[in-house]
Amino acid sequence: MEKRIIVCIKQTPDTRSVKMDEATGTVIREGVPAIVNPLDLYAIEAALNLRESYGGEITAVSMGPAKAIEALREAISMGIDNGVLLCDGAFAGSDTWATSYALAGAIKHLGGVDIILCGERATDGDTGQVGPGIAAWLDLPVATYVSTIETIEKKTCRLRRCVETGYETLTAKLPVVVTVVKEVSNPRLPTLRGKQRARQVDIPILTADDLKLDKSKLGLQGSPTRVVKIVKPKITRKTTLLTVKNEATLDQATGALAAFITETCK
């Protein structure tokens, strides 16, 4: 009962080292290390766990600049079998609508998949829209915020989904798009052997034409949304800091804080 699994991964700037150009209010991307979207690591690990339980083959798909091949190599060094990079000037500037169109095209191109895994969201765009978007383009069912992939049968799978008030148990028909949260897995580190393999393995690079995509649906021109302004949020908070040094200051500080909290809760 081998499963064909696709994991969608995005290369993102490491948000820990994102710097702002204070004058222009834009993000400085130069020199910022690029990493695999940390929330996609949970999807990668979930895929590896599935292969360990059921057998099968995992392909990681990424859309991005040529450099994004590094993200695929990292996934392979963790144990993913194959990588495919969608790279074409036609993709540049795509919003989630256009991105999910391109990724759906690649998934169709790869053919015959049982489970498509995505991260909950990418830490740069922070939308979480691409997973459900892929499902819509492919007309597949989708389960989001999945915290456990319990079992996979021939034609169905059983999942747990984390929502605001608790956990739902779901059954879904295959093929299905699943977006996962951190609870789903505990990502492993790349191994030395994996790293060696990742260096050697051939990663095909596909263009819009290879995928027979409609270019009017891609890139900036194919994207319904436009970013019109970016600003650095002003921190307007004035912090009142009270320091506890002894009984008296403890009493004062907690008294002031209790009053502040009670006032705020009103």
């Binding site: 989630t96 609508w97 979480g128 499902a135 989708v142 915020y145 994207s223 319904p224 949304t225």
Partner: peptide, 22 residues
């Protein structure tokens, strides 16, 4: 919400509409 952030992107594709999250 977990509902809105699932339904809206799915519908936005089918409706050929733009969507901004959160």
């Amino acid at each position: 919400t977990t509902l809105g952030r699932t339904l809206m992107p799915y519908v936005a594709i089918k409706a050929n509409a733009g969507l901004t999250a959160d």
